[in-house]
């Protein structure tokens, strides 16, 4: 084996197991020395190649894969999830549409009086005009004159609208009055009734007045009185 070929072979692979190389190296100390030098160089190269690996790289790799996996699972929702979502959306839309239907105030007033039963009707809180006006003030209204005996006056939730629920002394018995701030969604009937009560509804601009009493009660008198004395600030 000539010198050039020997060098080429060793440079290409210092760890070669080629028998011819070994024989040549044994016969020529210079060749052996060259081989040793190249092996030393290779050891140095190996040391330099051993770059430092960033800490936690393995964990970051696994983390990234888990995140992506999670992302993919999320995007691969089964069909029934999409179905459920669209049903929920439909329910939401229908609910909104149904809610947009006009609210029948008369019906609400009667239901309210019936459901409330006698707890408000039989109350005897002796509310004076000042106290009533204090409650009305939040709606921007006030009574400018005495409207007779007031048994009960309190806010109540009238179909999610805060309104004032008042029980007054009528001509014959007690009369329930609702003062409801105006809402375009409200549908108002001027006269209404059920098996026990009769009622009147009057739009007084900023608010709606609902007056409910027993069938025998001459409601118009109370209504007139209220209409006359109830004032709303601009």
């Amino acid at each position: 084996m000539d010198d050039l070929e020997f060098r080429r072979t060793i440079y290409a692979d210092p760890n070669s197991k080629d028998e011819a190389l070994k024989v040549a190296a044994k016969q020529d100390p210079k060749k052996q020395q060259f081989w040793n030098e190249v092996k030393k160089l290779d050891a140095d190269i190996k040391q330099q190649l051993h770059a430092e690996v960033p800490q936690d790289l393995a964990h970051r790799i696994v983390l990234q894969q888990s995140l992506q996996q999670h992302q993919q699972l999320k995007s691969r929702q089964p069909w029934y999830v999409a179905m459920a979502a669209s049903v929920a959306l439909m329910i939401g839309i229908s609910f909104t549409l149904l809610n947009a239907q006009p609210i029948d105030l008369a019906e609400h007033a009667l239901t309210h009086v019936n459901l409330e039963g006698d707890s408000a009707l039989n109350a005897n809180e002796h509310v004076n005009l000042q106290q009533l006006n204090a409650k009305l003030a939040s709606m921007g209204g006030k009574f400018d004159d005495d409207i007779g005996e007031i048994y009960f006056a309190n806010y109540c939730d009238f179909d999610q609208v805060r309104s004032l629920h008042v029980v007054l002394k009528g001509e014959q018995g007690r009369v329930t009055v609702f003062i409801v701030p105006h809402n375009p969604q409200f549908a108002l009937k001027s006269h209404f009734a059920d098996s026990r009560f009769i009622g009147q509804g009057i739009d007084i601009g900023k608010a709606t007045l609902l007056v409910v009493g027993e069938k025998t009660e001459p409601l118009f008198k109370t209504t007139e009185k209220l209409q006359k004395h109830l004032l709303f600030s601009a």
Partner: peptide
């Protein structure tokens, strides 16, 4: 093999 030879040759 040629490239390996040249690589070491250049380094040397």
């Amino acid at each position: 093999m040629t490239r390996l030879f040249r690589a070491r040759n250049q380094l040397k």
